[in-house]
Design a protein around this nucleic acid. Sequence first.
DNA 1: TGTACATCAGTGAACGCGCGTTCACTGATGTAC
DNA 2: TGTACATCAGTGAACGCGCGTTCACTGATGTAC
Lengths: 183, 183
Amino acid sequence: MKVSREQVAENRRNILAAAARLFRERGFDAVTLDDVMNEANLTRGGFYGHFKSKSDLMAQACAFAMRPTEHEPQTLLDYCTAYLSKEHRDNRAEGCPVAALGSEAVRQSLETRHKLAEGTKRIIAHLSKSAPGRTASARRIAALASFSAILGGLVLARMVDDPALSDEVLAANCKALTNAADS
Amino acid sequence: MKVSREQVAENRRNILAAAARLFRERGFDAVTLDDVMNEANLTRGGFYGHFKSKSDLMAQACAFAMRPTEHEPQTLLDYCTAYLSKEHRDNRAEGCPVAALGSEAVRQSLETRHKLAEGTKRIIAHLSKSAPGRTASARRIAALASFSAILGGLVLARMVDDPALSDEVLAANCKALTNAADS
DNA sequence: TGTACATCAGTGAACGCGCGTTCACTGATGTAC
DNA sequence: TGTACATCAGTGAACGCGCGTTCACTGATGTAC
């Protein structure tokens, strides 16, 4: 049955939100369109009214997941501390898409990679403002290096099967950050 | 037809080597057993004589890919420089499995994660020897943080669709490393 | 050392399941008068 | 404002393909004598 224009827009948002959560939690390949549509309280057939293909959904969902949030930490140090928290490590579904999907995204469509890259550029530009350094160039380098460091730290902390090592990885990265800030 | 014991061992090694290459290049899900067996010059049916399942192969292939190589750089700085090179970025198939498969490995079997974690522990222990710091604990923290940093840098450099940004990410991480070494 | 035969690694066809995608149909929406 | 009807978002069954896994068979290996 036809639905109102508002309902159409809300359905589309629900599909995107469900896809953004599920992709981050289970990875692109392991999530089926059925999974996404069920989570959005719709049925399979309706999908193609909203998106061209699953690959199209991946790109759109990445853009959705990368959109700025209201409570985004303002300073580089706050951002890194929150990024390296156990809460973030244990909540892939709502965390950074680059950490959740980074090594898979490499093999996805250019659109998907582009959406993730755009979001990353925005974050880097934002973090550059509060990064240490006398010149803009030095601050940008610091922001790029810091983002790389916390990204790798989070990926590693999630990957290892040993909880003690996982905690140690987070702690070591936090320590290195504050050391760098002091010097 | 039956083959000699030596041939059996060589076939197994060939399957592992093919899988280790293909998984890193295309990801776990996108590689089929047909792909692997063809690359090893065997046919599909023979697979189950060597491995219990595809999931078993993933774990074994990760262990294979993580085994120490002959030309492994000795010092932390050499290791990081090689890790952040464009050659490494552009050669996923023979590069670090953690960078190639890190965010996917999170969702794979405990065996797979364990093999990757074991290899990572070995590398961390190795890098700790040449890491800066007066105490063993400080050196270990430095090694963990450095490995996280180059891992994240490589994942990011591979992910972004903009070649200039990709190069910039590698360069920024190299710069940050040498800065840290100087201080 | 030579021969007979049991073993078993590898073959390739077949199976069954799941997933992306398509499509005829339904019925509420929203427009034209 | 009220009514008739064309539109079209969503439904759910169906399709087809690909993949992991199984299995009866083959023929070279390697052991027993």
